[in-house]
Simulated scan of single mutants.
Amino acid sequence: MKHTIWLIAIVLFTSCNKQAPKDYVTLSGTFKNIDFDKLILRKYTSKGDSITTINFNPDGTFSDTLKLEEGEYFFSQQGKDPLAILLYLKNGDDITINYDVKGNESAIFEGTGIQGSIYMEARRKKVKELIPDEEKFIATDSITFYKKIEGLKNEIRKLVDENKNLGTAFIELQEEFIEFTEGTMVYLYNMNKAKNDLIGKPAPNFVNYENHAGGLTSLEDLKGKYVYIDLWATWCGPCKKEFPALKELEKSYHGKNIQFVGISVDGPSNYDPWRALVTEEELTGIQLLAPENHTIYPDYAIQAIPRFIILDPQGNVVDPDAPRPSSNEIKPLLDKLLK
């Protein structure tokens, strides 16, 4: 009888102390050479949804727990490129990350549930290996381009197959990634082709854009000289960074057969900020505001701003994606055109 009671006691003790499965992720680790005190953990989606802020100690250590959906995540900083760390997380994981922010080595993962994150690092490297230069990747003929796309998809699927034990949700997410990557690269390829098709042809027309100096200006009014167009917006940080170099560039070619034209795509809703910024920055040249219903983006195959465009005196496109004012290539190009 005593023996039976003793066995029951052991069973009850074991049952009472059996831990329930963790319904959260534990993240900790050390990041060397940090110049920040926090990072934002984002879900790898088209919107990059913010999940939480991870706070760092001065020595680069951190520790946090969070509940989240199974999936792909990354660290980002406000106004800077994301860190080169991709994570695959699901509740129950307990992962330690060691990483040198300024080094070239991959992050080191330790703990439980690290297989997905190790896969993500392998995928990141494979994509970087096959697309080392995005511009060169899309600047090719269609047959070569689509062969490279198929090669990329096959290589990623090999990695997925090696990690298929991570489950159905993992496999489905990787197929979504493959589809998204293919769609993005095809879009960029088509936009690049459309952009190059503009060279030597009459520039897409625009009519009656408001001129900061007064009145309205159309493309027709700009003919007779070379035109260096700057497409920008008041909310675009990289655009505004080019202003000092742009003003210096215009000063260098003052009195020559070229005019500098800024076209803001802010639209009427940002009319007052546009006028104020042009005055504040003392932007010279011809400063125009595109209307709400402008078609500059599709007309000139633009994916992002700033974008610089050069037209010849007849109004034909010389370069639909000209070097920026801050680049070393712009002056030699303009000198060649104006000699």
Rank of each mutant, 00 (worst) to 15 (best):
S15N: 10
C16W: 04
A20M: 12
K22I: 05
D23M: 11
V25K: 10
T26L: 11
T30F: 00
F31I: 05
F31Q: 02
D37K: 09
L39S: 04
T45Y: 07
I51A: 09
I51W: 06
P58W: 08
K67E: 15
E70H: 02
G71Y: 06
F74D: 01
F75H: 05
Q78A: 11
A84H: 09
L86P: 06
L86E: 13
Y88V: 06
L89K: 08
G92D: 14
D93N: 13
Y99D: 07
A107W: 08
G113I: 10
R123Y: 11
K128Y: 07
E129Q: 14
P132A: 02
F145Q: 02
Y146F: 11
I149C: 12
E150V: 12
I156Q: 05
D161A: 05
K164E: 03
T168W: 01
E175L: 06
E176N: 08
G183N: 13
G183H: 08
T184Y: 04
M191V: 07
A203P: 00
P204A: 09
N205V: 07
V207N: 11
N208M: 13
H212Q: 10
H212S: 10
G214I: 13
D221W: 10
G224I: 10
K225T: 15
Y226A: 13
L231S: 09
C236A: 13
K240Y: 08
F243T: 11
K247H: 01
E250R: 11
S252V: 00
S252I: 02
Q259E: 10
V265W: 03
P273E: 15
L277N: 02
E280N: 01
L283V: 02
L283Y: 01
Q287A: 01
L288P: 03
L289H: 04
A290E: 14
A290Q: 12
A290H: 12
H294N: 15
T295S: 07
T295E: 05
A301T: 09
A301S: 15
I310Q: 06
P313F: 05
Q314N: 03
A322K: 00
P323V: 00
P323D: 00
P323K: 01
P323M: 00
P325A: 15
P325F: 14
P325Q: 14
I330A: 00
K331P: 08
P332S: 08
L333I: 07
L333K: 15
L334V: 02
L337P: 08
